[in-house]
């Protein structure tokens, strides 16, 4: 269980509260109006924004003050998920060892991960030479080798076309299915929620509400959510 206990997140004039327990293996969609704090919530989970109040716990461990790299989670951002000066294989390899001193076994792992996202022939290319979809796949290959219990997505596929985005979401679903990781993803699209999410965290009015089952919520949204969904 990943718990936010009485958390308050403050950034400049913006403040939000969150109190929730998230279960590994579940897929959570974070939805809400623009500027409501969806990305901020993820940044706080990941350790980029310190909690002004409250605790973040993972099982018995207190993660509140842990640095991002030491948390049991990995995150894909809206952009800059790959280092443009490193090859695809190096980018993936960083997920195994930050110093890139890869053993033969590590290299096999990288190769395997690239195979699973369909990039086995692009290992030595730089990201600039890849298409948008391929770049996303490369980032996902790294997520795969990192094998953290949680994967956080801050709309990394927003720039992709609908077909490609769905393809990526399916790939993500596969990956978390294989690794048993929990997924927390920010999204704007109700169809994404239906496609992938088990639970929904609705963020609005300075509050990140506790997760509710996706199906029920989307079928019968409360007034604020209805206003957002339009």
């Amino acid at each position: 269980m990943l718990r936010l206990e009485g958390a308050q997140i403050v950034q400049g004039n913006f403040a939000m509260t969150a109190d929730m327990a998230l279960e590994q293996g579940q897929k959570y969609a974070v939805i809400g109006p623009s500027g409501a704090g969806k990305s901020t919530l993820l940044a706080a989970l990941c350790g980029f924004i310190p909690l002004a109040q409250g605790r973040l716990r993972w099982h018995d461990a207190d993660l509140t003050d842990a640095v991002p790299g030491a948390r049991p989670m990995t995150m894909l951002f809206q952009d800059n998920n790959l280092f443009p000066h490193l090859t695809v294989a190096q980018n993936v390899g960083l997920g195994i060892r930050p110093d890139l001193r890869l053993s033969g076994q590590d290299k096999a792992k990288v190769e395997d991960a690239l195979g699973r996202v369909g990039l086995q022939d692009h290992a030595d290319k730089k990201p600039g030479a890849l298409s948008g979809g391929q770049q996303s796949r490369a980032a996902l290959a790294r997520v795969l080798v990192q094998a953290r219990p949680w994967l956080l997505l801050d709309e990394p596929f927003a720039a992709l076309g609908p077909a490609l985005r769905n393809e990526m979401l399916d790939l993500v679903q596969d990956l978390v299915g294989q690794t048993g990781a929990g997924l927390i993803m920010v999204t704007h699209a109700p169809e994404d929620v239906r496609r992938i999410a088990d639970q929904v965290i609705f963020v609005a009015g300075g509050v990140a509400e506790a997760p509710q089952p996706a199906q029920a919520l989307m079928d019968n949204p409360p007034p604020e959510l209805r206003a957002y969904l339009g």
């Binding site: 990941c46 350790g47 980029f48 640095v67 991002p68 790299g69 030491a70 989670m73 990995t74 995150m75 951002f77 800059n80 998920n81 790959l82 280092f83 490193l86 190096q90 960083l94 997920g95 930050p98 110093d99 890139l100 990192q146």
Partner: peptide, 20 residues
């Protein structure tokens, strides 16, 4: 541009300089 990414990967010290 790459600070957060480096952080999530746990890049610190020499590897951070060397690879990023």
């Amino acid at each position: 541009d790459y600070g957060r990414l480096s952080e999530t990967l746990g890049l610190h010290g020499w590897p951070l300089w060397r690879w990023v």
